[in-house]
Design a protein around this nucleic acid. Structure first.
Lengths: 188, 188
DNA sequence: ACCTGAACACCGTTCAAGT
DNA sequence: ACCTGAACACCGTTCAAGT
């Protein structure tokens, strides 16, 4: 069927959104493209590389420009934009978390965060770790959020009350041991 | 071979530590126990339940009593203890993160954190969300840490310099949009 | 450049039947 | 209570060969 690499990525994103990450298999994707699974290995070394490309495409589609300005406003905008991009596709957060788990992908948000944090005057090495921490948080939180959202939309019963849509929490973090300080909390 | 449920859990933890999560399959575990894979389904409904039991066993083995006292010291001790428990077994962080992803396990640390945070005067519902956030952070951070540690110990080349052992970061977090504020940072 | 056909070495899970 | 034997419906990946 003479697919290009980009056709494969586009179709994979489509399969992801319609059937979920668990059903995004090489065999299924091949079928959707009218091609044997082995043909996919012409375009990608392995499934991990494919998923990394799909994750990056998902993030690219969700990318919104971040206005210059105060560094904390930029960090906020990057995190909010990332969250929105993840929620735009089924299992988006799980996909990106998976891809990051094997050390690939999501370089865009990472770099953007790191640069914004350097703009805050953070030591360059520290800015990298801080960017990782923020990504942990946004991915973890959005993963939960998306799991609950999808459970709600699939279940026979309506959502749990959804008590606002909460919360704030301040942390101060980490060492060889972990040192945590909850510095503020607010609800709205 | 007349295994009890606990024998299966113990052996699974052993296989995890020796071969990693990817090689902890029902078939492999059966072989290690001298039993057909189907025999495992006498003890567990499915692999997810097995993994949940293994995760809880891992956490139970790593559990250390948390001294009463200031709530923030308790939160710190719980997080540090959790991290230590996760690092004590190969792929420990990945296992617990996986188990939590399908909504099971790690209830112990969660409850402990929630109770400590209530002790800080947090609204009960907020304390639950805050406990989730802390778990996100500790799991995410320890996952990275363990990945790098294991990569280092497996690689042909020695560790990257390991520049101290980093970092602190303050956050204030989340909503429908995500609002992040980096409130402090320090290195040592 | 892109794909087929066929194989290899695996998975999780079910279920009737055995002891 | 615990296990076997056999099957079902899948996986990711490789590779020579075709166009």
């Amino acid at each position: 069927m003479r697919n290009h690499r980009q056709d494969v990525v586009d179709r994979a994103l489509d399969v992801l959104d319609r059937y979920g990450l668990a059903d995004l298999t090489m065999r299924r994707l091949g079928t959707e493209l009218g091609v044997r699974p082995s043909a996919l290995y012409h375009h990608f070394d392995d499934k991990q590389s494919l998923l990394a490309a799909v994750a990056d495409e998902l993030l690219a589609r969700g990318a919104r420009p971040v206005a210059p300005g105060e560094w904390d406003a930029r960090v906020t905008a990057i995190c909010a934009g990332l969250r929105e991009a993840l929620l735009a596709y089924r299992d988006g957060a799980e996909l990106v978390a998976t891809v990051r788990a094997f050390g690939l992908g999501a370089a865009g948000p990472y770099d953007a965060l790191r640069d914004a944090l350097r703009g805050a005057g953070l030591d360059p090495a520290l800015a990298g770790t801080a960017a990782d921490t923020l990504l942990h948080f946004v991915l973890g939180h959005t993963l939960d959020e998306q799991t609950h959202l999808q459970a709600g939309s699939a279940g026979a019963i309506a959502d749990d009350p959804r008590p606002g849509s909460d919360f704030a929490l301040g942390l101060a973090i980490v060492v060889d041991g972990i040192r945590v300080r909850v510095s503020e909390a607010a609800r709205r």
